[in-house]
Each structure stands twice: as structure tokens, then as C-alpha cells.
């Protein structure tokens, strides 16, 4: 896979001026705010808590979700729209999550949407200053969907802290496009938009790295179970992930399999009301 394929704009923010150029602001991007009717593509915004997802969301949709600098600020998913190069996109801002493997109630919203909402493109916003920890979630998401764009945000902060990131190498390692951005100044957003558009249209076909489980017995078990899951639920989008959860003893997933409702998670909605009587 060539670099050009996965990093259309890998060099460090070459087009910050595009922000103000008329082609970007007027002709190509139309912020549609809350108007999400008749969209062509759904784009999910995922990432660790506090990486600037909401800032990206606001910048693209023209909405003003408040962003606070702490984990758990966004507890529900927000939706907005934008139009770019004639296509209408629905953008879904998911609550921050550290992992898809063990979830708390607020993270479930993000997990269910990523797994079963089948967005056309998933943009993972990663914090350049805490990239190693962010890569944990990136690699987990790469295991369940191919259409991923990684937006490495806060690269100005990283630079201030003496951290330099080789986006080209990162894109090669991950097998998906990587776009460096400074969301709050709008830098890199034109590149991010065009990358999203290219992944959505199929012009870029990411080939994400799948983390070897480094465990032959586990690999065999997952493979065996995936085959069985696909036999029982032929249209289930995330057999690999469901297999891992079953092997991990996830009671709620086992219950969903037993009742045959596992496919219904597709519309994974907001957090369920809390149990009325405390345990």
C-alpha cells in the first residue's frame, strides 16, 4: 500500500490557509447545524475522553456543543450535519471512551453505535500528547471496521511539550489515513474533510492493521467461534467482536445471543434508565 493511498495530506498542516480560502468556506463545506435530513453518509466521531471530538464536531457542523476539559463531559451522542462537495453528511459525536472491551454506562452509547450503527466512516480523534494510550482505542476500532480516519488532534500542544509525531509512519503502521489537526484553530480540517469524503466514496480503501492476539489458542478459539456465530446470525456485522465478548464471558452479550436480539443492538440507543432499587 502506498503512502499516498493512506495519507493524502500527511505533511504537517500544509494548508492552514484553506481555512479561510473561499473554496473551503463557501463552495465546499456547508455547515448544516441540526439539519440532518436526507444525508448520504453517516460519520461517527469517536475517541478517548477529552481529545477534542466536540471541537471537531462544532467546527464541521457549526453547532456549539459545549466542550469541557474533563472526562465524561459528553454523556449522550450529539448529531449534526454538513455538506461537502455536494454530499450531505450526518455527523454523530459519541461520548469519549477508553475501550470497547469493558464499558461503563456512559461508554455504552459509543460502543453500541460504533459496533452496530454501521457508520460509513468512523473518525477517531486522538490526542497527540497522549497518543500511546489513545492508540489502544484506535487499534480496537480498527479490529471492527475498515472505514477509519484517524485525526491526530492537539499537535500544537504536543509540539509545545516537545512531542513530534511522524504521521506518515503512523498511517503506514495503522493502515488507515492519518490527518494531523488543530481542531480549535481549524487547522487540518480541510484535509480531514476531503479524507472523510474519499473514504466515504471508496476513493480511499483503508486496510487497517489487525492486532495479532499473540496467543495461538486464543486466535483458534476466536476463529472457531466466529464461524459458528456467522452460521447462526448470517448478517451480524461484528461477529469477531461478539466472539471476543463471549469468550470473555460478557453476560449481556450472551443474553442478547440467547434471545436472538444481538442484531437489534444496531439501534443501540442512549443509556438505559438506572435500576430503581440500589443493589
Amino acid at each position: 500500500m502506498s503512502d499516498e493511498l493512506v495519507t493524502p495530506q500527511a505533511s504537517s498542516l500544509p494548508h492552514a490557509a484553506c481555512n479561510t480560502c473561499p473554496a473551503y468556506t463557501n463552495a465546499q463545506l456547508r455547515k448544516l447545524g441540526l439539519d440532518v435530513s436526507g444525508w448520504d453518509y453517516t460519520v461517527a466521531l469517536a475517541g478517548n475522553p477529552n481529545t477534542g471530538k466536540s471541537t471537531v464536531f462544532n467546527a464541521l457542523t457549526g453547532l456549539r456543543q459545549h466542550t469541557g476539559n474533563w472526562a465524561g463531559k459528553t454523556v449522550t451522542r450529539a448529531e449534526g450535519g454538513f455538506r461537502f462537495q455536494g454530499k450531505r453528511y450526518k455527523l454523530v459525536d459519541l461520548p469519549g471512551t477508553y475501550s470497547l472491551l469493558s464499558t461503563s454506562a456512559d461508554e455504552e452509547v459509543a460502543r453500541d453505535f460504533l459496533l452496530f450503527g454501521q457508520p460509513h466512516v468512523t473518525v477517531i480523534v486522538a490526542d497527540a500528547t497522549r497518543l500511546e494510550r489513545n492508540l489502544n482505542l484506535v487499534l480496537q476500532i480498527l479490529a471492527i471496521t475498515d472505514s477509519v480516519v484517524v485525526a491526530v488532534n492537539l499537535i500544537d500542544e504536543a509540539r509545545r511539550h516537545g512531542i513530534m509525531i511522524d504521521e506518515r509512519g503512523l498511517a503506514r503502521d495503522l493502515g488507515v489515513p492519518v490527518v494531523p489537526i488543530v481542531a480549535r484553530r481549524g487547522e487540518g480540517l480541510p484535509e480531514l474533510l476531503s479524507t472523510i469524503a474519499q473514504v466515504a466514496s471508496g476513493a480511499i480503501r483503508p486496510r487497517p492493521r489487525h492486532v495479532p492476539l499473540r496467543d495461538a489458542a486464543l486466535e483458534r478459539a476466536v476463529k472457531q467461534l466466529v464461524a459458528q456465530i456467522e452460521a447462526v446470525f448470517p448478517n451480524l456485522p461484528q461477529a469477531y467482536w461478539v466472539a471476543l465478548r463471549l469468550l470473555d464471558g460478557d453476560a449481556s452479550i450472551a443474553q442478547a445471543v440467547r434471545e436472538g436480539t444481538i442484531g437489534d443492538l444496531t439501534r443501540g440507543q442512549a443509556v438505559a434508565p438506572i435500576a430503581l432499587e440500589a443493589a
Binding site: Y98, S99, L101, S102, S104, E132, R133, N136
Partner: peptide, 11 residues
């Protein structure tokens, strides 16, 4: 339990 998982998730 859940706490162990969270600690792993946090790295």
C-alpha cells in the same frame, strides 16, 4: 472485575 478492566484500559 470491572475495576481491573478499567485499569487495563487506562494502560
Amino acid at each position: 472485575g470491572a475495576e481491573r478492566r478499567r485499569l487495563f484500559d487506562l494502560g
